[in-house]
Design a binder for these strands. Sequence first.
DNA 1: GTTGAAATCGGTAATTT
DNA 2: AAATTACCGATTTCAAC
Lengths: 158, 158
Amino acid sequence: MKTVSAVELDGIDRKMLRLLQAEGRMTNADLARQVALSESACLRRLKALEAAQVIGRYAAVINERAVGLPISVFVTVTLASQAEAALTAFEQAVAAVPEVMECYLMTGGSDYLLRLVVRDVDDLERLHAKALTRLPGVNRVSSSVAMRTVVKRAALPV
Amino acid sequence: MKTVSAVELDGIDRKMLRLLQAEGRMTNADLARQVALSESACLRRLKALEAAQVIGRYAAVINERAVGLPISVFVTVTLASQAEAALTAFEQAVAAVPEVMECYLMTGGSDYLLRLVVRDVDDLERLHAKALTRLPGVNRVSSSVAMRTVVKRAALPV
DNA sequence: GTTGAAATCGGTAATTT
DNA sequence: AAATTACCGATTTCAAC
């Protein structure tokens, strides 16, 4: 696996990133015009950003509501042990649950924060009982439902 | 503002969405081949998905570490009041903080959950003091730092 | 401080798809 | 029309003198 460390970016690079976060299918010609570079210079920079994994990929951004997954649930999970093996087992298992969109290991040692997407409360209940509490090493599981998304920023503040 | 409700999707639509979440710059010809449709039929479906806002946009996916924002912080905010006006004032103000990538109103009435991205702990301290605690109507602010991202799923389970 | 090699960066134009 | 490559010129960096 390739861990990517911070990269030197100038103002043009940052402008390219802002534009491409808003409109990922923009043509190179358009992009070049908006950053006031020639097409070849612009493309060279773009390829460098891709090669350095500053741009990891391009993605269609899907409306969660439109595909029937309107509810985000945040789940705090505490493990019984913080032994390396326990963490690894949990992490492998949690990554295999498709509804888990994000999972973070929080400071402190053995607490995880998850964001799930679910269809409805029945779906949440099913997941809670059938998947979450059965993950290896789990001590405590606590769920909070998001009633409404207030901010979902399209672009990083680059 | 256009609120999007759930849309009927068949297996081909879902396959298109999966493919485009992984590779948003795929050409229509490629996409058509992979879902075994003609290019015109494929493009018709794609345009329909875009028009229905199932696909909201296309975006370059940026590596947060590479652009120098390697730390995610989750912040719980409790407001002093749950009056409509207090919520609105808070939400407008929080949306104006660039480091706030996400903000959710949680069930229960006046608790918000935020995800911030920061450069380092100094940056977090600065934000906490200068931005978060000064947001209108804030009663209590509690931050938890993510040590590591375990899962960041590229695609919704469609 | 100047010189010169090498790297960096942009542009033009030709080629490919 | 768009992407890509080849080639050239300008500028910067840096080490040796």
